[in-house]
Amino acid sequence: MSSYQTIHSHHSHHGWDNTLVPVKHVVPGEIVEFEVRDASGGQLTAKSDASAVPSLDFACINPVTGPLYVEGAEPGDAIAVEMLDFAGVGWGWTAIIPGFGLLAEEFSSPFLHISEYDDQRVRFVDGIELETAPFPGTVGLAPAAPGHHSVVPPRRVGGNLDLRDLTRGSTLYLPIEVPGGLLSVGDTHAAQGDGEVCGTAVETQFSVTVRIGLLKQANLPAPQCETTRSLRRSRRDDKGFYVTTGVGPDLMQASRDAIRAMIDHLGKHYGLAPEMAYALCSVAVDMRIGEIVDIPNWVVAAQLPKGIFL
């Protein structure tokens, strides 16, 4: 790979603000490495347990590395972020944080699970392995609105999108609202299911290498992306999938019902405790809308790849 600039992890911030001074300036076509801290901001270690979760300082959660100023980038344009490579640290964490997640009212006790991974697989627990599929959960630009804005919710200019599509070879397009765009990257994952239902994935530190592009006058309404990776999981798909559903007039309630049914299935058929089953849903189960046209009820599906069980 050609030479590139690096933005180190100590150049991090905890919210979007268009007055932040850029760490570096680049021209379109340049390659940049972002050293990304994990979503806890280093508060959790490979030796942490659930007792560390209630004491997390949420002011330090989800740090993002940057910002990067792209020369020539103006409001109405779009910045293209091509994912080239990822280098991780070999371990990650998945937590249930009280008050957070799809089933927050039902899982009110803190939970923390540590996984190990290499370039091919995440060893979740004995007998359960996931494909390692690194991506940054947060890639975003500064909004035009003045002031400090939380990094937690996604926005028109990107941010905490949690799109597992953004693996190697994919390109994310972000609409620009301020000169230079002010790009930052964070919240890197070793694996995640669509929906990230318990609120966390396999959270870990990665260095993310990207190529920066610029699309003049793109006028995108919201983030868009291209990916060469199928949304189906590539390993052990020949074992098939188990799907639970939620049916009703409210997509959020249907999503909760589908995950409750999957947690029940994982307990009955694989002996997983509810907390571990919920965490596994967050890192391996894909949520999707089955149909949203047959009034008055919609269908949400939760899809479990059976090949993760050895």
Score class of each variant (00 low, 15 high):
Arg164Asp: 00
Arg164Tyr: 00
Asp165Trp: 01
Gly169Gln: 06
Ser170His: 00
Thr171Gly: 00
Thr171Lys: 00
Leu172Trp: 01
Leu174Cys: 09
Pro175Ala: 05
Ile176Asp: 02
Val178Gln: 05
Val178Cys: 11
Pro179Ser: 14
Gly180Arg: 04
Gly180Met: 07
Leu182Pro: 04
Leu182Val: 07
Leu183Val: 09
Gly186Trp: 13
His189Gly: 05
His189Arg: 12
Ala190Gln: 07
Ala190Asp: 01
Gln192Ala: 06
Gly193His: 01
Asp194Tyr: 07
Glu196Cys: 09
Thr200Pro: 06
Thr200Arg: 06
Ala201Trp: 01
Phe206Leu: 03
Ser207Trp: 01
Val208Asp: 00
Thr209Leu: 04
Thr209Ser: 02
Val210Ala: 01
Val210Ile: 13
Arg211Cys: 02
Ile212Glu: 06
Leu215Lys: 04
Leu215Trp: 03
Asn219Trp: 14
Pro221Leu: 12
Pro221Ile: 12
Ser230Ile: 03
Arg233Ile: 03
Arg233Met: 05
Arg236Ala: 10
Arg236Leu: 11
Asp237Thr: 12
Asp238Ile: 09
Lys239Leu: 15
Lys239Trp: 11
Gly240Ile: 12
Thr244Tyr: 05
Thr244Glu: 03
Thr245Asp: 14
Gly246Lys: 08
Val247Trp: 13
Gly248Tyr: 15
Gly248Ala: 13
Leu251Thr: 10
Met252Asp: 15
Gln253Trp: 10
Arg260Asp: 04
Arg260Ile: 08
Ala261His: 13
Ala261Gln: 15
Ile263Gln: 04
Asp264Val: 11
His265Asn: 09
Leu266Glu: 05
Lys268Leu: 14
Tyr270Asp: 03
Leu272Arg: 03
Leu272Met: 08
Ala277Pro: 03
Tyr278Met: 11
Leu280Ser: 11
Leu280Arg: 08
Cys281Glu: 02
Val283Ile: 08
Val283Gly: 02
Val285Glu: 00
Asp286Met: 05
Asp286Asn: 14
Ile289His: 04
Ile289Ser: 12
Gly290Trp: 01
Gly290Phe: 10
Ile292Asn: 14
Asn297Tyr: 15
Trp298Leu: 13
Val299Pro: 00
Val300Lys: 06
